[in-house]
Write a protein that binds this DNA or RNA. Structure first.
Lengths: 135, 135
DNA sequence: GACAAAGAGGATAATATTAGTCCACAAACA
DNA sequence: TGTTTGTGGACTAATATTATCCTCTTTGTC
């Protein structure tokens, strides 16, 4: 019941990007050194962020990664979801899982509620909030 | 970011126990058949519930397992914690983990908040609530 | 055009976690 | 005494996570 290390890498990555001047490209190598993240693994992590439309990449000399949304518009929920897919506290809550009892099953209802409470908190925290020391 | 299958087994187990007449012993075999849980694995699961003081066991003929608290006093949080240990959305939130930045780190603060929101929901849901279809 | 810098992507390995199985043993009871 | 039932440990299997390696493509620069 933890976010994966890859999610943490992703969070540190977008924070690093959010700290840089708007629109500036940071290379995967640079980020990997700053944040002590294995470079090749970071690249894959970045790819997931691209697929989630949180960042864009550019190849070639002086290429790199940049945010494509304002730090105010990106939340921890966005980042974690980009890496791990939709939250699902239990298999029975995963999209497309066909539990015959759902949604009448009282356990799944409670898990869904707990999950929503957590997601709401993560969805409230933007990168900007975090960088501002967060009120 | 899921509860483990073992936690789910544990939940189903205590619910089964909560449905039975107060104080009645159910054997691991019986529960494993009712709930389709591998028997030997269930036994280990039960042991964790014992260690968490949620159930008591009795050996020998007609032995088995029973709750030692009222279903009103046992919450999903109790059960999940019994199996998985204290919740920790991230390593940095695990008891005893020495992150140099904690607790000033804004990310860990948010994760902690999200975790608490989830834990609160799980801690509100008692077995009795669940069996009553939960309001 | 050649070369270097970077991301893309696939394959595979290394670890860690989770789940499940097996078996000898101890306690309770008839 | 022997059967039922939990205990405990070792072990295996399955899966997920994390990490590494290598080749390819794109882009910019000389």
């Amino acid at each position: 019941m933890q976010i994966t290390r890859q999610s943490e890498y992703a969070i540190r990555t977008v924070l690093e990007l959010a700290k840089a001047p708007v629109g500036e490209l940071l290379s995967a190598r640079f980020i990997s050194e700053q944040q002590e993240i294995p470079e090749d693994f970071l690249k894959k992590t970045i790819k997931l962020l691209v697929l989630a439309d949180l960042v864009a990449t550019q190849r070639g000399t002086n290429g790199g990664v940049r945010l494509i949304k304002s730090p105010r518009e990106i939340t921890l929920l966005d980042v974690v979801t980009a890496i791990e897919g939709p939250l699902a506290l239990n298999v029975c809550l995963a999209p497309g899982y066909g539990c015959p009892n759902q949604p009448s099953c009282p356990v799944s209802r409670i898990l869904a509620r707990a999950q929503k409470a957590m997601a709401d908190e993560l969805g409230k925290a933007s990168l900007a909030d975090i960088l501002n020391g967060e009120k």
